[in-house]
Computed example of a mutant assay.
Amino acid sequence: MSAGTETETGTETGTDLGAPARAATSPHVLDNAAWASLAGAHSGFAEHPCGTPPGTSRAARYDPDVSPFAALADPADPRSWADLALLVGPGRTAALSGLLTPPEGWETVGSVAGVQLVGTSLRAEPAPEAVRLGPADVPAMLALTGLAKPGPFLRRTVELGTYLGIRHRGRLIAMAGERLHPPGWTEISAVCTHPGYRGRGLATRLVRAVAAGIRERGEIPFLHTSAANTGAVRLYESIGFTVRHRPFFMAVRAPVGTPAEHP
């Protein structure tokens, strides 16, 4: 699914009261957070359809070593789907969020109901025991996420933002970090704890610590979880997150055949 946040139970894990008001008809940036990230702060990780003139692409995806997700500039615009078909190739799949029904010719091959939460009253504070994680820590991070399964974490995911970890006797036992980065917001993701160390509040301390860095930049933290994980939703609400939106995370397959050239 789209988010990689996890509670201490080993399962993936808000409208901010301080966020600017918006018109009811105006889409919120968090409704299409992946596109806002790829078109902005994460443009350096973005792949666009081959031959698309600079600045005109209506679809993009992350470098496959960074994240498996793709995004559409406007899911209601056929041009966005045409560009996505050019980008992924005939019969290939893409991971998207926020969609219910893809257009004719596209096939939904997987769908998970999600919950988007915003840190409306989250207490953000440093965790003295937490250490900054970087490329040298990737093998340990991959081992931990492979065991705890918080969601997609790849060998270059660490490049998306700040990742913090807690070690015990040299072993990485908990981590959390930053993923999507739409303007004014940062997603907390890959929150996970080794099964042998759960129930000690490590995940909560790391979430607060990552949020502290986000708040220092003047941004607002948010995260995602599976809608089926009601325990995770309750936990995050208990520490100051508020449910904002209930998106779907989907894997879709492009139509088989040669997509039309970009106009």
Results as ranks from 00 to 15, higher is better:
Val207Ala: 13
Pro128Ser: 10
Gly134Ala: 15
Val207Gln: 13
Gly170Arg: 11
Ser80Pro: 09
Thr230Lys: 09
Arg200Ile: 01
Thr204Phe: 01
Gly165His: 08
Thr204Met: 05
Thr204Glu: 14
Ala82Val: 06
Ser121His: 03
Ile239Glu: 09
Glu6Pro: 00
Thr145Val: 00
Ala41Asn: 08
His181Tyr: 08
Thr242Cys: 03
Glu237Met: 01
Asn229Ser: 10
Ala33Glu: 11
Thr93Pro: 04
Pro64Asn: 07
Pro152Glu: 10
Gly146Asn: 00
His194Ser: 07
Pro27Ser: 03
Glu178Arg: 05
Thr162Ser: 04
Pro255Thr: 11
Thr101Cys: 06
Ala73Thr: 06
Ala228Thr: 12
Phe248Gly: 04
Thr9Ile: 00
Arg169Ser: 13
Arg92Gln: 15
Ser67Arg: 01
Glu219Phe: 03
Arg132Leu: 14
Leu144Tyr: 02
Leu202Arg: 06
Gly161Val: 10
Pro183Asn: 07
Glu12Ala: 10
Thr13Arg: 14
Arg244Val: 00
Asp77Phe: 04
Val115Lys: 01
Arg167Asp: 09
Pro259Val: 08
Thr162Met: 14
Pro150Asp: 00
Trp106Phe: 13
Arg234Asn: 07
Glu6Val: 07
Arg155Phe: 00
Pro221Met: 12
Ala212His: 15
Trp185Ala: 10
Leu99Lys: 06
Arg244Tyr: 04
Ser57Met: 04
Ala130Asp: 08
Ala60His: 12
Glu104Thr: 12
Gly165Gln: 10
Gly196Leu: 07
Pro90Tyr: 12
Gly257Lys: 04
Ala76His: 14
Val112Glu: 14
Gly98Thr: 02
Ser67Ala: 15
Leu84Thr: 09
Asp74Gly: 04
Pro255Asn: 06
Gly91Thr: 05
Glu107Pro: 00
Glu159Leu: 03
Leu87Lys: 11
Tyr197Gly: 00
Pro183Lys: 11
Val131Ile: 13
Pro27Ile: 09
Gly114Val: 05
Ala39His: 07
Gly201Lys: 06
Gly161Lys: 12
Leu160Asn: 01
Val112Phe: 05
Asn32Asp: 13
Ala113Gln: 12
Gly218Met: 06
Pro53Lys: 03
Glu47Trp: 13
Asn229Gln: 08
Ala59Asn: 12
Gly196Asp: 15
Gly10Trp: 05
Pro103Tyr: 10
Pro135Arg: 07
Glu125Leu: 08
Asp74Tyr: 04
His42Phe: 07
Arg58Gln: 14
Gly91Glu: 03
Gly40Arg: 04
Ser80Asn: 05
Gly184Met: 09
Gly170Ile: 09
Glu104Trp: 03
Pro128Phe: 14
Val109Ser: 13
Gly199Thr: 02
Gly177Ser: 09
Glu261Cys: 02
Ala136Lys: 05
Thr225Pro: 01
Ala24Tyr: 04
Glu125Thr: 12
Ile166Asn: 06
